[in-house]
Design a protein around this nucleic acid. Structure first.
Lengths: 337, 337
DNA sequence: TTTATTTACGAAAACGTAGTAGTTATTTAA
DNA sequence: TTAAATAACTACTACGTTTTCGTAAATAAA
């Protein structure tokens, strides 16, 4: 017997399909002895209820998706880790999709998830997304989306972020307190609210310390590493005499390390660097990298938990809620001598 | 109309369900005008075929699982990246499961995947797994498993690895050629064939250069970081005068960096370190880390491609095949002055 | 003893899709 | 003019579960 299903089981036990089904679900309608017999046979034959047939009855896929912009990023992998733990705990399954920071891919992925394949989505926006109609459509189709980190303010739902404004402020203040006066901000994308908030924090700190905000010190990086390298190189060789860099994400900080090495600029003596990052090797870098470390694992776990909270309910009515989990400044060698 | 399905569509168009279904699949039985009308209405109402109902007809879930021992590891995340790309390309969906190096979790996960939820699995063994019955059972249940990196020799299937023996040999030879004579090997688990092969390569290199093999220089690490730290500390403060470390995985190398820092042992002057790793920051570490870099992305993509190759076929008959993709030695500061 | 209730089971329908087997109406061949 | 072929559509079934409804037998209440 290749595929063992209720029908096979029933005929093997000389019972009806309904009886077997009920016995397996421990229904009060079935006698004790019969239940025992069914359970034993099911175990013997290795019966496992087919999840897709089950879906047909309840319209619950017991599956959620996590949609992230990129894989090679210590933040996202920790988020996945957190989300996967909660999913397994709740007996849910986790599908993974990577947008590669491509709006088209994100749209395509979200569209493909609106056919009942998943009960809900946790995601972080791609940096190139400007229009949110694919997301609102998805939610209107009763597939809830919970955002983490790169959230979408325009959509009413649960959003999990860190305290980006405050962290941006603290990061910049840290540079200032360590002697920087010409601080550049490496921006990931003006489309993203986290970027704006981190930058607002940066500007606020500059203001507090009476340092003029100079728009030319906002470097708009993108997904092209080489172009970022050139931009940063230009910045550091330019007239601005940059002595501090606050990077919105870790990738740009590493590119900055690269540029500094090539230009023989000494960190932290000539320039200090701080960035948002969850790199486990931050402490071992040369010099060790000062980071704003986000509670990535917790954010992933929270996103998943929040989603399940609403999936369990009959009528899904996801409130607009901002859950903020604080980041930590980890001062290291790239900012402190 | 909340959920739009074939039935709704049909009644909206005043056609039968079969006609609509056939029109959508571009059947020759349906007239040109009708097809057009159906397509337009389907688009207008945003019809999307339910994947689970589809499964009921074809018994194809269009879903595969990737099962990995841990998330926070640059190798596995690149593998996922590669696998996800191929999956999307083929219009498949990728479920992710993390065993956390726990045999019980691995067994539980594999058991849960034998109910038709996935068409196939790509996986890397957990280090604590000694018995393979859950895997053979899974394959007997017609769910093919393709292994990558931490493969299972005892099971006949496609296995994707790097040239572990040769790489182990080259790594050790590299240490020897840079002056090491007392080389320790940090073993991940004697259960894993990659560990044995890497170690065999290590032993072979020692033999070639007439360096006696000393069993006490094989350090059996595990999943407990603190215990590993203690073991390595003991090794480096012991009488063996270790001047070279070959670590089977990157985590132990980083622990060694930690130990060296705490003991003020200079890398590479007093001790040289090489390890299998895909760390993107290897170049920025202090000192930069010499690695055997595996083609992780390619391994993930190959694993997925191979799986799809057999899933497409009617009768799945997966041959026993070893696909070996070569690693590269990246000599850096931890072994070269 | 008769009627009501409980116990333990089975028949059948439904979920959404896709394919098989009809069924008209129209066109072509004999 | 009739038979055969084709075009364009529909009815119905199956996939594996779960659940509603039904029913017979056993037990309890009247």
């Amino acid at each position: 017997m290749s595929k063992i299903n209720l029908k096979n089981l029933a005929s093997e036990l000389e019972l009806s399909i309904s009886t077997v089904s009920k016995a397996l679900r421990d229904s009060y309608e079935i006698g004790h002895d019969t239940k025992k017999r069914v359970l034993e046979k099911a175990k013997e034959l290795g019966y496992r209820a087919n999840p897709y047939a089950r879906y047909m009855r309840h319209h619950k896929s017991k599956t959620i998706a996590i949609v992230i912009p990129e894989m090679v990023n210590s933040f996202f992998l920790q988020v996945i880790n957190g989300a996967e733990s909660i999913a397994r705990e709740k007996d849910y399954h986790l599908l993974i999709y990577i947008t590669h920071e491509d709006a088209q891919k994100e749209i395509s992925i979200i569209n493909h998830l609106q056919n009942g394949r998943v009960d809900g989505i946790i995601m972080s926006l791609s940096s190139t997304v400007k229009d949110y109609s694919h997301l609102t459509e998805c939610i209107n189709n009763n597939i809830p989306i919970i955002f983490f980190d790169r959230i979408c303010h325009e959509i009413e739902t649960v959003k999990i972020t860190t305290d980006d404004f405050t962290s941006g402020f603290i990061a910049t203040e840290h540079l200032i307190q360590n002697g920087c006066r010409n601080i550049a901000y490496l921006s990931i994308s003006e489309n993203l609210s986290i970027d704006n908030k981190r930058m607002q924090g940066y500007i606020e700190a500059l203001t507090k310390y009476d340092i003029g905000f100079d728009k030319s010190k906002i470097i708009k990086c993108n997904t092209d590493d080489k172009s970022n390298y050139r931009q940063i190189k230009k910045l550091l060789t330019g007239p601005a005499k940059i002595d501090g860099i606050f990077s919105s994400i870790e990738k740009f900080a590493l590119t900055t390390y690269n540029v500094c090495r090539d230009l023989k600029i000494k960190i932290p003596e000539e320039i200090k660097i701080i960035c948002f990052s969850n790199l486990l090797t931050a402490d071992f870098l040369n010099p060790s990298l000062t980071t704003i470390t986000q509670p990535a694992n917790e954010m992933g776990a929270t996103a998943a938990s929040q989603l399940f909270k609403y999936l369990d309910k009959k009528r899904m009515e996801i409130p607009n809620e901002n859950i903020i989990i604080k980041s930590k400044l980890m001062a290291r060698g790239s900012t402190v001598a």
